[in-house]
């Protein structure tokens, strides 16, 4: 369980919020505080006041994968292979084991054909896929994805979703502007002006957004 208590940070005010294991999607207008909250949960920033406890630990003690909303800000190395291999190498895995992990994951994500390319020359969507691969290769307990889907095509979203659903990572917390994706989550948190407006299952949260642009497209068709 992730427990947030008495949080005050920049424009964000959250008195109490719990997040259960599984896939959690954060929704809300641009500037509502989604990235600010994700940075705090991942331990990149520390709150001005209040606490965030993840299974009894502070965020910085939890192994975390992070994907930035600015695709270029994820990249450390020039070649795709080196970028994806970074986490196993930092963990001192042997070269053959690292290679096995990189090849296996790149096959699952559909990146095998670009492993020797320079990351700077990739398309926007390919950069995001590389960042996701680099973040999940070590199967962190917590995976934080900031707008990971805004440069992906539906087929790639589906491939990523299959991996996210595999249960290899205990907590997956992402924000999205695709409400059809948010609607498939275990848990949805809606932020408005730095506060949690609604939290709960997708049906509990989205019933407050009927007749707005934030209602999932697919639900409207089936009704």
């Amino acid at each position: 369980m992730i427990e947030i208590t008495g949080l005050r940070h920049r424009t964000l005010t959250i008195n109490h919020l719990t997040i259960t294991p599984g896939r959690t999607f954060l929704i809300g207008p641009n500037g509502s505080g989604k990235t600010t909250l994700l940075r705090l949960i991942s331990g990149i920033d520390e709150p001005e006041s209040g606490t965030i406890i993840i299974d009894g630990n502070v965020p910085r003690m939890v192994e975390t994968g992070w994907v930035n909303e600015y695709p270029d800000r994820n990249i450390l190395f020039s070649q795709v292979y080196d970028e994806i291999a970074a986490a196993p190498r930092f963990a001192h895995l042997s070269c053959p084991d690292t290679e096995t992990q990189v090849l296996d994951l790149s096959f699952r994500i559909g990146l095998k054909h670009i492993l020797r390319r320079n990351v700077r020359d990739l398309s926007g969507g390919e950069k995001v896929l590389v960042a996701i691969a680099a973040a999940i290769i070590s199967r962190p307990a917590l995976l934080v994805l900031d707008e990971y889907d805004s440069h992906l095509d539906p087929e790639s979203c589906h491939q990523i979703d299959t991996i996210l659903r595999s249960g290899e990572m205990r907590y997956i917390i992402g924000c999205t502007q695709h409400m059809d994706i948010a609607a498939t989550g275990d848990h949805v948190i809606a932020l408005e002006r730095g506060r949690v407006a609604y939290t709960g299952s997708p049906s509990e949260v989205f019933r407050h957004y009927e007749n707005t642009a934030f209602y999932p497209n697919s639900w409207r068709i089936t009704q």
């Binding site: 809300g28 207008p29 641009n30 909303e69 926007g124 707008e147 805004s150 440069h151 502007q177 409400m179 707005t212 642009a213 934030f214």
Partner: peptide, 13 residues
């Protein structure tokens, strides 16, 4: 080129 990416649903509309 990808004008809708990162925009929220109201802004896309």
């Amino acid at each position: 080129d990808e004008p809708f990416s990162a925009l929220d649903c109201d802004q896309k509309m």
